Simulated assay, not measured.
Amino acid sequence: MKVSPTRIEVIGPRPRTEPGDHLEERMSAQLPRPVRTHATVFAGDVESVITNLERRGVRHRVSPAGNDFPSPRVWIGVTDDDPLGYDPTVDGGLLAEVISPDLAGLPTEYADPADFDSYAPGTIVRVAARRFLVADLDEAVRALDANLLLTPSGLVTDTVARRARYTFGIGASAGIELAQPTSADSDLADFAGKWGPGPHAVVLAVRGLEQFALDLEVRGTPFTRSENHEGQWVLHVDTSFTSGTPFEFQEIEPSPK
C-alpha cells in the first residue's frame, strides 16, 4: 500500500447477513459482462460528500457504521428504497462508493514506485489505472463534476476513443479513465459493442516490460503489443486466460508529485 494505495480484490456474493448488504444488487445492475465491480471506492471526507449530495439532491444511500465497517459508507446512484435501481447517469457508470481514509487502510507515508532498486525486472509494481467504457463521455464528465465534484486531469482524443483521465490526491493512486469508443475497428469498440458501457480494463505498471513479456512467454500466456494513446508500448494479455477481463501492462513511470 505504500507503493500502490489501490487494491484489486476478487470477490463474490456471500449469504446476506445485513439489511444493507447489496452486493447482489450491485452485480445485477451491470448485467452479464466479463468484469463487474462491487464499487469504484473513493477515500475521502464522507460527511462532506453526504452534505454535497443532499444539497444537490443526488441519488445516493448511506450504509451506517456497523460490525463490518466502523464508519459510514456512501453509495452513489441508488437509494435505500430502490437498491436495484442504480442510475449510471449519476456517476458516469463508476458505481461509486465513498469511504473514510481510515477504512481504506492508507499509510501515512508513501514510497515512490519509480524507485527501481526495490523491484526485480519483470515485477508488477502497481495499479496504474482502471478503465470504464461510457456511451457519452461529455455527459459522464458533467455528471462527475456536478455530483461528486470530480474534474478530469486530462481529455484526449486518439484514433480509437475519446478519453477522460482522473487522478487523485495521493500521487501513487491508480487513475480512472473513461473511454468512449469512436472507431468501429478496434478491440475497445468490439468490447463495447458486445458488453456495453461499464467496467473494462485494469492497467498494471511493471518494471521492465520486456522482461515481463518474456515471463508471459515462459508461462505460455498469449499476449499482443500495441501503442497506447500516450505513446507507450503496452501488452494485452489474451482475455481467454483472464476470465474475459482485459489486463494491460505498461512500463512504470514516476508517480505524480
Rank of each mutant, 00 (worst) to 15 (best):
M1V: 06
S4L: 09
R14T: 11
T17M: 11
D21L: 03
L23E: 09
E25F: 05
R26L: 02
M27P: 01
T40M: 03
G44F: 00
V46E: 05
V46Q: 06
S48T: 08
S48E: 14
V49S: 08
T51K: 14
R55Q: 14
V58E: 14
R59M: 09
V62P: 05
A65Y: 06
I76M: 13
T79W: 06
T79P: 05
D81N: 10
P83S: 05
L84E: 12
P88C: 04
L95I: 05
A96G: 04
I99D: 01
A104K: 11
E109I: 00
E109Y: 04
F116C: 06
S118E: 12
A120Y: 09
A120V: 10
T123L: 08
A129Y: 06
R131C: 03
L133E: 15
D138R: 12
A140K: 11
R142N: 07
A146S: 14
N147F: 02
V160N: 08
I176S: 03
A179K: 11
A179L: 11
Q180A: 07
A184L: 05
L188N: 02
G193V: 02
G198V: 00
G198N: 04
H200L: 03
V202Q: 11
V202I: 15
L204N: 09
L209A: 08
Q211I: 02
R219C: 07
R225L: 07
Q232W: 07
V234H: 10
F249W: 06
Q250S: 13
I252W: 07
P256K: 13
